[in-house]
């Protein structure tokens, strides 16, 4: 069992890097876009908020697999050639952005409107109100669901194997396809994913602790 695992490790390395890359890009892109659109949704007029709402609800309602295949096949036909890697990443990022938009909106609207009024009354502009008053408070509400979403992104990154991108999952399948010994490899794969998510857990607890200290309820 252990020998099989040790044997497999070198073949899994590239796939592991791909998994990290996919997860990292998806998390970063969805955070950036989700922040922007979440703020717009929370503060902007209805006619701007509505398409954002429709987008967020639609992508979250479509199963990820369907989303990936639709992007993978749909974009080239619309004259947008994308490699399988970027097509899958785009689909995953869109899915996660929908989530982050919701989380951001929820965190912002949980803040008492009096806070914005007080911030206005000392002459802060919109961005200044966000940076100095809203975000420091909203981040406490934002972090727990967002960290969950990050873990989901890591797990969801396994789906890129469906369009032929050799991530950790597919690398595992490839070794199994040669050795016909699935058990050691599935266990090894689980251990790797657990390790990644454990690292994320530790990081997230530190993040939460840091922000919890500065805000008292």
């Amino acid at each position: 069992m252990i020998d099989a695992m040790i044997y497999a490790l070198p073949f899994l390395w590239d796939g592991f890097l791909i998994t990290l890359a996919v997860s990292g890009i998806v998390v970063a892109a969805s955070l950036a876009l989700g922040l922007v659109f979440g703020v717009i949704l929370a503060f902007g007029p209805v006619w701007i908020g509505l398409p954002i709402r429709v987008f967020a609800d639609t992508v979250r309602a479509i199963p990820l697999i369907v989303l990936i295949f639709t992007v993978y096949y749909g974009l080239p036909a619309l004259q947008v050639p994308l490699s399988p890697f970027w097509a899958a990443v785009a689909a995953l990022a869109a899915f996660k952005t929908g989530h982050v938009i919701e989380i951001v909106r929820g965190a912002i609207t949980s803040i008492h409107p009096g806070q914005m009024e007080a911030a206005k009354s000392i002459g802060l502009t919109f961005l200044e109100r966000l940076v100095y008053v809203v975000f420091p408070q909203a981040v406490r509400c934002f972090l727990p669901p967002w960290i969950n979403s990050v873990t989901d992104s890591v797990k969801g990154s396994a789906l890129v194997s469906l369009v032929g991108v050799v991530d950790l999952m597919m690398a595992i399948q490839q070794v199994i396809g040669r050795t016909y010994q699935p058990m050691p490899l599935y266990i090894l794969g689980a251990m790797i994913y657990i390790a990644v998510n454990a690292a994320l857990s530790v990081a997230s607890r530190r993040l939460e602790a840091r922000f919890a200290a500065t805000v008292a309820t």
Partner: peptide
């Protein structure tokens, strides 16, 4: 309903 609308647009595009 909004999601259904979005999905319909999606299907049309596909």
């Amino acid at each position: 309903a909004l999601a259904a609308l979005g999905a319909a647009a999606f299907v049309g595009m596909a």
